[in-house]
């Protein structure tokens, strides 16, 4: 047994209630989810289908012209299996409208533009559909900062943000999602041949194991090294976690008045609901 293993049935119960309660209190009973064909968005869509009913979930497939056909096929398999509503909106013209005339060649920049183009579509559809955008970022990715700010990280509610990648895979199996989605190599599919683990330089299993000890159990560097983690790896990940803190917080406001929003103007989003 892996110390990261979760009680899937319990987690499903918690997350379904979370989705219902946090959307329902604002009068929303519908969800918009970008479905990429990957495991995170598949799990999110499956939880939304259970929380709101399949007819109240819009799974949006948002391919770019270079997206792999396999990703598209998996995305379609997910929405079909869940019986949720779906729409296919290709973002090529939208993204290229900016990328081509401005000759954006850098892979990271291009990937960010695609992620933000998808965000624009999801938020627009959420207005059309009177629904909330439900996010798909997991805890591993949030800690690593492996996401595009205001892109795939943008959402109203995030059910998966306190679950590591290992736990997402477990939940995906529990929810009976298509095997091709669970078994394939994770990829952001922003350029050809991209894999998450290739780009990160380590595996999710390595990151998850370290994070569980470092973040959840609050072990320091010496303890982690004593437990068998390579010092260099520990330092590299710790630096990455700190470097990406900006992605996890709202913009920094210069504090000038006697009461500053989000600093000593402290209200939950659930304020009055």
């Amino acid at each position: 047994m892996n110390r990261l293993d979760i009680q899937c049935e319990l987690v499903e119960q918690l997350l379904v209630r979370f989705l219902r309660s946090e959307a329902g209190k604002f009068g929303f009973l519908r969800a918009v989810v970008g479905v990429s064909g990957g495991v995170d968005s598949a799990v999110t869509a499956a939880l939304c289908a259970r929380a709101y009913g399949p007819d109240n979930v819009l799974g949006v497939r948002l391919p770019y012209k270079t997206s792999s056909p396999a990703s598209e096929a998996d995305a379609l398999a997910v929405v079909q299996q869940l019986g949720i509503r779906t729409r296919r909106i290709e973002i090529s013209a939208m993204a290229d409208g900016y990328l081509a005339p401005n000759e954006v060649a850098d892979r990271i920049r291009r990937g960010n533009v695609m992620a933000r183009a998808r965000m624009i579509v999801l938020y627009d559809l959420s207005a059309e559909w009177r629904a909330l955008v439900i996010g798909t970022s997991n805890k591993t990715e949030i800690l690593l900062g492996y996401s595009t700010q205001f892109g795939d990280a943008a959402c109203a509610l995030n059910p998966l943000g306190d679950l590591y990648k290992h736990q997402i895979f477990q939940l995906a199996r529990h929810l009976g999602l298509p095997a091709s989605v669970i078994e394939k190599t994770p990829t952001a599919d922003l350029f050809e041949g991209q894999t998450d683990e290739g780009e990160l330089g380590f595996t999710y299993a390595q990151a998850d194991a370290l994070f569980e000890r470092m973040i959840d159990q609050r072990c320091g560097e010496e303890q982690l090294v004593a437990e068998g983690f390579e010092r260099e790896f520990v330092r590299r990940i710790a630096a990455r976690v700190a470097l990406n803190q900006y992605k996890r917080l709202p913009p920094v406001i210069a504090k000038l008045s006697e009461r500053t929003v989000n600093h000593d103007f402290r209200y939950l989003r659930s304020w009055g609901h």
Partner: peptide
């Protein structure tokens, strides 16, 4: 929510 000897 991780698995332990006692569920819950």
């Amino acid at each position: 929510v991780t698995q332990t000897e006692e569920p819950g």
